[in-house]
Nucleic acid binder design. Structure first.
Length: 297
DNA sequence: AATCCTAACAACCGCCAAATA
DNA sequence: CTATTTGGCGGTTGTTAGGAT
């Protein structure tokens, strides 16, 4: 929660335009404000956030209104206790997707990216650390052969061995390496989460696998392949998830529609006879990640 | 009772891609 | 085609509540 807007510190100059106006309120929302915003959005619908405050009669910036609606007021938002199933799922998805909170939230009905991010930072990352696992990459924190005594008992997780699991590399990184090696210029994942060539950012991770992106000039022409790969990976994962998760995984998938029929999935060998993009090791890595039994109840 | 410490989480920030003018 | 606006994202801040001292 923030200090209300009356403060006039030097940081004001750095604020984005919508929050830089005199008379714009900041900080916690009151029940009265919530009601005004809820009534307005229920009546007029979502969108046009920038002009919404004026139309609705709120002394807030549009960004703040959008955030309040999306994370708190929306009827579909399920707030409160995150149960064991959800927690298990967040762990699996984070291991697969990293800090892509909106993608993770998209797989957990009723939960927002902000809520999952908070839950991760306050609960789950600490839980993993207590197990001797690095929450950033799900690999052992301490590469020494003997984990600390008691580390495996200090959580809700069921220890399946005396050793923390050694996990395979992140599948998305593998994906791009594969694209690069077979067909295109060198691409790597940068620390800022963007895909890069040697000196130029070429593709935002937010674009990968979703949307047409017509008109954009990506140096790789395999965007559709990547798109298809996302779909294929989705199918593999849904088929191999623990049973309670299978149905909603597919139902909530944020993937192109309609999905391509199975018959269009390219073979595991490309036209040159080289290892194709559906590399068996890549698929195996993804399945190993999602099926790691250490998060099971 | 007062103070300190920390977990929890709502809200803000800067950035950037997509949409629109 | 370019400039501007909008919406969405992940990272971070800082208030609050509650437990410990």
């Amino acid at each position: 929660m923030r200090v209300p807007s009356s403060s006039t510190t030097g940081s004001v100059n750095k604020r984005t335009l919508c929050c830089n106006k005199v008379g714009i309120k900041r900080g916690p929302w009151t029940p009265e404000e919530d009601e005004v915003l809820s009534n307005y959005v229920n009546r007029e619908g979502e969108g046009r956030w920038r002009t919404l405050p004026k139309r609705a009669g709120l002394q807030r910036c549009g960004k703040s209104c959008r955030l309040r609606w999306m994370n708190y007021l929306r009827p579909s938002v399920k707030r409160g206790h995150i149960d064991q199933d959800e927690e298990d799922l967040i762990l699996r998805l984070h291991r697969l997707l990293g800090n892509r909170w909106s993608l993770i939230a998209g797989r957990i009905p009723g939960r927002t990216d902000n809520e999952i991010k908070n839950y991760w930072n306050t609960h789950l990352s600490k839980k993993l650390i207590s197990r001797g696992i690095d929450p950033r990459n799900h690999r052992p924190l301490n590469p020494s052969p003997t984990p600390p005594i008691g580390a495996l008992n200090n959580s809700n997780f069921v220890a399946i061995s005396d050793q923390p699991p050694v996990l395979p590399p992140h599948p998305n990184a593998l994906t791009l390496e594969k694209f690069s090696a077979n067909q295109h210029q060198p691409i790597s994942t940068a620390g800022n989460g963007n895909w890069q060539t040697s000196n130029t950012t070429v593709m935002s991770q937010r674009s990968v696998g979703h949307g047409s992106n017509a008109g954009q000039s990506y140096p790789i022409d395999s965007f559709n392949d990547e798109d298809t790969f996302s779909w294929y990976l989705d199918r593999l994962l849904s088929d191999n998830l623990p049973s309670p998760y299978q149905r909603w995984w597919w139902e909530t998938a944020a993937i192109p529609s309609p999905a391509p029929p199975v018959s269009t999935i390219p073979p595991a060998v490309d036209s040159n006879g080289q290892g194709g993009i559906w590399d068996a090791e890549l698929v195996k890595s993804a399945l190993e990640i999602i099926n790691q039994p250490d998060y099971s109840k």
